[in-house]
């Protein structure tokens, strides 16, 4: 009996310093998309990158799709805050809690590891469109309220909110047409059924190279590295900047030491060749923001979209 107690005490001591040895078991990376979705590719590449920089434990990507990230967030909240479950996040981290009535979690329930970059949102028209510049589009919409058809992923999606904010600050009215996939939106744009779409570069790059579409503006604070000739909405006087940030988080309450270890590994991983090739191929803008600085971005982001999203959520 005494032996058992001594053993237990010893194990207790070992346990309390366990995080020093983090990671000592396999780590799960949760993607809130189905296999093949954008967040899935992000998580799988991150896992691969961590492996190549020598992360000492195996990494598994687990798919928890549904409810625009709500299922994935709930799943991670149901796990212990020990750093063994990492969540791949995008701006749905902000959007979903605001648009899902009764959803109990928000970004405040997560501890940031890092943000590694973002997808800028572009205003795109077909190349045979009558709109040569973003001013053309906005002026036409001003003169003809509700006639400019804009394709998006539907209310609550970030491209829809970009469109809504532009309409708001420019004082115009768009006719939003909701779609389920980027392919459908693009086909409708090329087929002339809609006038414009809000898109990420990876969705329209092939068409851009072939001269089938034209990019009128980008919804970021500053011009983007990949397409420096594209004006921002902001410089035209419409302050709309909502990039789709991408990063990784763990559950709130994870020991600070563990978070720090994770940050160190994650920084190494996103700087690896594997991950840089992914950023390049997906036309993402790199932007490394670590730990609490990421939280600051999230707070500002939430403030920027809260009104328009809550109006939608009614």
């Amino acid at each position: 009996m005494r032996k058992a107690v001594a053993l237990a005490a010893l194990l207790g001591i070992l346990g309390s310093v366990a995080f020093a040895g983090y990671p000592e078991k396999p780590v799960e990376i949760v993607a809130w998309a189905s296999p093949g979705g954008g967040s899935d590719v992000m998580c799988r590449t991150f896992a691969k990158a961590l492996e190549t920089v020598g992360f000492p434990q195996p990494l598994y990507v687990v798919n928890k799709p549904g409810g625009s990230g709500a299922v994935g967030m709930t799943y991670v909240q149901g796990k212990p805050a020990d750093g063994y479950t990492i969540l791949g996040v995008t701006n749905n981290l902000i959007f979903t809690p605001l648009t899902t009535p009764g959803f109990q979690y928000s970004f405040r329930d997560f501890e940031p590891i890092l943000m590694f970059g973002y997808d800028p949102k572009y205003i795109v028209v077909a190349s045979n469109s009558r709109y040569q510049t973003i001013e053309d589009l906005v002026n036409f919409a001003k003169a003809h309220p509700g006639e400019v058809k804009v394709g998006t992923f539907g209310p609550g999606s970030d491209d829809h909110v970009v469109g809504m904010q532009l309409a708001q600050v420019a004082g115009v009215e768009f006719n939003f047409i909701p779609f389920d996939s980027g392919g459908e939106i693009l086909a409708s744009l090329l087929g002339g059924h809609i006038d414009a779409q809000v898109a990420e570069l990876s969705e329209v790059k092939g068409q851009l190279d072939a001269g089938a579409v034209r990019i009128l503006a980008v919804a970021t604070a500053e011009r983007v590295r990949t397409l420096p000739d594209v004006p921002t909405l902001k410089e035209k006087g419409w302050d709309v900047a909502l990039p789709k940030f991408r990063g990784f988080m763990v559950k709130k309450g994870t020991p600070a030491e563990v978070v720090q270890i994770l940050i160190d590994w994650a920084v190494k991983a996103v700087q690896s060749d594997v991950f840089q090739a992914y950023l390049e191929a997906q036309h993402l803008e790199p932007a490394l923001v670590v730990g609490p600085d990421f939280t600051k971005i999230l707070v500002d982001y939430e403030a920027a979209v809260k009104d328009v999203l809550q109006a939608l959520g009614q």
Binding site: G206, D209, A210, A212, A281
Partner: peptide, 8 residues
Amino acid sequence: IYGIQPGP
């Protein structure tokens, strides 16, 4: 991922 841009 292979750096080949799909498109027309």
